[in-house]
Design a binder for these strands. Structure first.
Lengths: 341, 341
DNA sequence: GTGAAAGCGCTAACAC
DNA sequence: GTGTTAGCGCTTTCAC
């Protein structure tokens, strides 16, 4: 392992000082073109690799972004990471990822590690059990901007990138109504989370706007799993009349479809089904599942842009921004009666 | 933004020197218990957060691992990341992820950025177009261990975590033979990649071991896409006789199924189909698609363990290790004739 | 068991 | 346009 070249080595070779080399490498305006070119040449010749660690220590900040997700190997989150990384790379930043596994203590540890690493910013989608936010406030107190995405909270005054879940819920429900559905089931989830609450609100408002009376028995809490959909159809819903299902989870929607098919119900003729998230599997199942696209990659890009906007604005860091992306209905066979005619 | 506490502050408060504080925090054996406890107490009181950047500069290495994947939002790769991160976190390391987008130049840039960030190690799955390896050799020259996973090459003497693709190909093919298939199609891909080559080799050997003559017309190169499977069935295969398909990609397998169903062929009665990778959608399609599981999360863990083994061994870094995971057949309806009887 | 002192590699006043 | 100087916060060798 050969000794690494530093700006000292370049300086010595060119008989200038390290400061000049540093300035030349950073394209400082007051350095002559000749010097810059000479420095570049020698740097290349000596195979120089700038030491970001030293630079970071001196400048007091790294070019690292810390990103926390519940689990990285979920389609939605991995796409968000993709989006963040794309923007970050362009700006010369790198992205550290860490998983909270929906565990508050682990989330705390991860944030602490990020602070120790002196990341320039923290991106996070809150875990299900995150009901305390001290670790985020601590980060802010230390001057590290927070950007929340998807699962956010009003308890933290931070920049936020979300989709319009309310609108997603509204559009999905209205779509079912337009297909002729009058008794629409809604699979929802824990109301502590902004996203499920908003989708439910969209569902309720769509019903109201179309003069459909709410049957509270058709609003069914579940845990986002495939099995919950099967269960619901076979148990809670077995004696109810319904002609549409709007599920806040694609998995639960698929479970319902499986159970309905097993009962000999035809989809979408007897029951229209629409999910939420546009999980990769939805286009491949039988029948293809209608859903709502959340544009996770765009959400990641938006989140990254909020961060850069925040640090590039000359105001102090307490100014936060918000981006709300519009979701999109993906209409497939599971809810499309009109194409049948 | 309040001034950050340093070990100096702790030292001053306790009337000891920074050296002692540093030692205490790092649990140095020659520091008394009393001192350690006092230091801990004051550190907590002053809300001390160790500056990893300073520590890294001094020690000459960070606790960062650089991880390159073609695209992070692919089920396989995101699971590998999950595995690496799990192990890394336990060891007090963080994981930087970057995407090459299958672009050699971007892969080079990313590796360079990792070196500038002074990562402790680099994990990579090679891009399709990675035919030069200078950037990896450069990293090794600088004393940064490389761990390759999944898509590897013999051109780099590095630690490697892979699955036994040969065995996967063999098992999949043999499974079809056991189902009574005699004329088995194989969708393969670019032979520059170790993984597709090995799976093909497994296919060929399985045929040979079961005394089935190879029909080279049944080995069809494709680009891993769903459309390739549809195309193949409708064109190249339209005049061929075959009763089984082993596809090196789940997507292409699904495409073939779609095309076969459209032609009124029944699966698995007329044609058995098996894919490769156990993509999340495979269990949900109709019929559920048999496939080969690659245990990506385990692969990530194995890769991380190889890295730690390498740096913890007292020998120099040129000793490399290899882990080969065994793949597992996932038999579902698309290739399961025996359950039908 | 603790202190003194040096330095990791870089940047940014301040000087001229 | 370039040099001088100091220091970011930590670790570690050498003392005693």
């Amino acid at each position: 392992m050969n000794k690494k070249t530093t700006i000292q080595d370049i300086a010595r070779e060119l008989k200038v000082t390290p400061s000049t080399v540093s300035r030349a490498l950073n394209d400082h305006p007051r350095i002559s073109r000749d010097t810059k070119e000479a420095v570049q040449r020698v740097a290349t010749k000596l195979n120089y690799s700038p030491n970001y660690v030293a630079s970071a220590l001196r400048k007091g900040t790294t070019q690292l972004l810390g990103l926390v997700v519940p689990r990285i190997n979920r389609a939605f989150f991995s796409s968000v990471v993709r989006g963040v990384e794309e923007i970050a790379l362009n700006k010369g930043y790198s992205v550290i990822v860490a998983q909270s596994n929906e565990d508050l203590n682990r989330e705390r540890d991860v944030i602490k590690a990020f602070l120790n690493a002196r990341v320039a910013g923290i991106f996070s989608s809150l875990g299900k059990n995150t009901t305390q936010f001290d670790h985020y406030l601590e980060a802010q107190k230390r001057g590290v901007p927070i950007v929340l995405f998807d699962r956010t909270t009003t308890a933290i005054d931070a920049s936020k990138a979300v989709i319009d879940d309310y609108m997603g819920g509204y559009m999905a429900t209205e779509h079912l109504i337009n297909q002729g559905c009058q008794r629409i089931v809604h699979f929802t989830s824990h109301q502590a989370s902004n996203i499920y609450k908003e989708r439910l609100r969209g569902y309720l408002d769509a019903l109201k706007d179309h003069n459909i009376d709410l049957d509270e028995g058709l609003v069914i809490p579940c845990d986002l799993q495939l099995e919950d959909g099967i269960d619901a159809v076979n148990n809670v819903l077995s004696k109810k009349k319904y002609d549409g299902i709007f599920s806040t989870s694609d998995y639960t929607a698929l479970g319902a479809i499986k159970a309905l098919k097993a009962k000999g119900k035809s989809i979408p003729e007897e029951v229209c089904v629409i999910g939420f998230s546009n999980e990769p599997f939805t286009e491949f199942v039988e029948p293809p599942l209608s859903t709502v696209d959340q544009f996770p990659e765009d959400m990641g890009k938006a989140a990254a842009e909020l961060f850069f906007k925040q640090i590039e604005s000359d105001s102090d860091l307490s100014t936060t921004y918000k981006t709300m992306l519009q979701p999109q209905l993906i209409i497939r066979k599971s809810s499309n009666r009109l194409d049948l005619k």
